[in-house]
């Protein structure tokens, strides 16, 4: 089994305080993995480490056959300034960055790809709408259209179903399933264990340290969930000595 991502004794954090500690595991290529854990478990931090926004305090991240150019990242909606005067087509076109770079022109064929991506998420007709006028679900569809354009082998999703209705969630899950069928590696931070059990074959449970990683039915046990909560509560009270030792 080829490895898409490997975490080798990885510690990530902010202001020298670790948010993910001593993570040691591998994500298989072509896998569909949910990253779960209590609030403050380091799930989003892990994704920021993979895209390079955070530099490891210790250890390293291995990319297997990938390089950082093969990664597409869906940030949390709260990271995006919805008041910025951008239209749907402007935001989706950002997915062409790797082809056009900071200065290149969007050519006719690329405009057609943008239109196809917008159609694939069911937003044809919304091209000229400002992103500030969209609902949470429509905005998430726009961000998925941008991911489609990026056409990356490794897809990182940070809470992709926050504030979306069930119809939108079903549509977005279908896109994720298609990526999985195409052999892309998908890593998604999620809170809803029911959808993880139904749609994600593998799960990585974090509580700053790794609690468990493997087949979803083996990871999402009540013992693991209890242990994860205990570890995170210990971290909240003594952040400098948190982890398995404190639990």
């Amino acid at each position: 089994m080829t490895t898409a991502l490997s975490f080798e004794n990885l510690t990530l954090g902010y202001d020298r305080l670790p948010a993910v500690q001593r993570l040691e595991t591998e994500i298989p290529q072509g896998s569909l993995t949910a990253v779960v854990g209590p609030n403050g478990a380091g799930k989003s931090t892990l994704l920021k480490g993979v895209i390079g926004t955070l530099t490891p305090l210790e250890g390293k991240i291995g990319f297997g056959e990938f390089c950082r150019d093969d990664i597409a990242y869906l940030p949390q909606q709260s990271d995006i300034d919805r008041g910025f005067p951008l239209t749907v087509v402007d935001l989706v076109s950002m997915g062409l960055w790797r082809q056009i770079g900071p200065f290149g022109r969007v050519r006719r064929a690329q405009r057609a790809r943008v239109a196809d991506a917008i159609a694939a998420v069911g937003l044809t007709g919304f091209e000229k709408r400002s992103i500030g006028s969209l609902s949470g679900g429509q905005m998430q569809r726009v961000l998925f259209a941008r991911l489609l354009l990026q056409d990356a082998q490794l897809v990182l999703l940070d809470e992709p179903f926050n504030a979306v209705d069930t119809r939108t969630m079903a549509d977005l899950l279908e896109i994720i399933a298609r990526w999985h069928r195409e052999g892309r590696t998908v890593l998604a931070v999620l809170h809803d264990f029911d959808s993880v059990r139904t749609h994600f074959p593998r799960t990585l449970m974090l509580a700053r340290e790794m609690v468990a990683h493997g087949a979803t039915e083996d990871v999402l046990t009540s013992e693991n969930q209890f242990r994860a909560r205990q570890m995170c509560e210990a971290c909240a009270s003594t952040p400098h000595v948190c982890g398995k030792d404190a639990a």
């Binding site: 920021k48 895209i51 390079g52 926004t53 990664i71 597409a72 990242y73 940030p75 990271d79 995006i80 300034d81 910025f84 951008l86 935001l91 950002m94 960055w97 790797r98 992103i131 941008r146 990026q150």
Partner: peptide
Amino acid sequence: CADPQFLRSV
């Protein structure tokens, strides 16, 4: 301005 995390990722 609009999506700094995305710029940092690409």
